[in-house]
Design a protein around this nucleic acid. Structure first.
Lengths: 126, 126
DNA sequence: GCTGGACCTGACGCCGATGTCAAGGCATAC
DNA sequence: GTATGCCTTGACATCGGCGTCAGGTCCAGC
């Protein structure tokens, strides 16, 4: 299939697919007229990439998964390199969760305090 | 005080202060020679801005707080407009927390599955 | 008068994934 | 032959908060 069909079937854009190729995470054969030619396995690769991106992975981080699939594995995370990325990402996510959680608590506190102020009628002369 | 001192005392850079001014969240008087002149109240404004930025607010979102302080309130969140921003931000943060939490769970699952695979010795021929 | 430091404005760079426009090639349908 | 549509490469735009460089001004100390 050509790039338009791959884009449609993978729910992305031709621009993105060319970008993935430019970044070295997706390869393509070329037909005689220079058009990119893909097959079903490429569709799986793109779906893997898209799934990871949507979860918050960077494009570069998807490479081990793609390589793993290309190596013939049934799933992209069957390789140690992919697992390492999982682990790093999990650590990142957990750290981010901690930060966000404390931000949330802080916001709730401020809102609670503001509510008290509001009920007592003191405050903003704006 | 001039911009250098304000930057030092607020723990930021002169570049940032000029940027805040450019974006309309921080004002400045000018001395005869064109230099920016600040006072202690500006220091409080900048500290408010920095605090909010560090929590994940966008610069534009800090404006109500700054306006509130400039209106003579003891704290930047004494005004309804600030409270609204708090509420919007809280909603954003909670949504983000939900997403991240499910991502975290997903990652944990994948890692657990991978561990099983690893122990059984099946998998990656890379 | 010179040097150095702090200030000024203006403008480009970054990061990351993608939109979008431009200008052209090739093929299919009429 | 021409219209249409998909393909090609290349390159600029986006968003946000800054870093950083360039080139020039102003003032204090010597």
């Amino acid at each position: 299939m050509r790039i338009g069909e791959l884009a449609a079937r993978s729910g992305t854009s031709t621009r993105s697919l060319r970008y993935y190729e430019e970044q070295g995470v997706l390869a393509s054969r070329r037909t005689a007229n220079g058009h990119r030619e893909y097959d079903e396995s490429d569709l799986r690769l793109v779906r893997e990439i898209r799934g990871l991106l949507s979860i918050g992975f960077g494009l570069a981080e998807t490479r081990p998964f793609v390589d793993c699939l290309r190596a013939g594995n049934a799933s992209g995370d069957a390789c140690p390199a992919s697992i390492d990325v999982y682990r790093r990402k999990l650590a990142e996510v957990e750290q981010c969760l901690d930060r966000l959680t404390s931000v949330r608590d802080h916001l709730r506190n401020q809102l609670a305090i503001a509510d008290e102020r509001g009920e007592r009628g003191s405050g903003c002369p704006c």
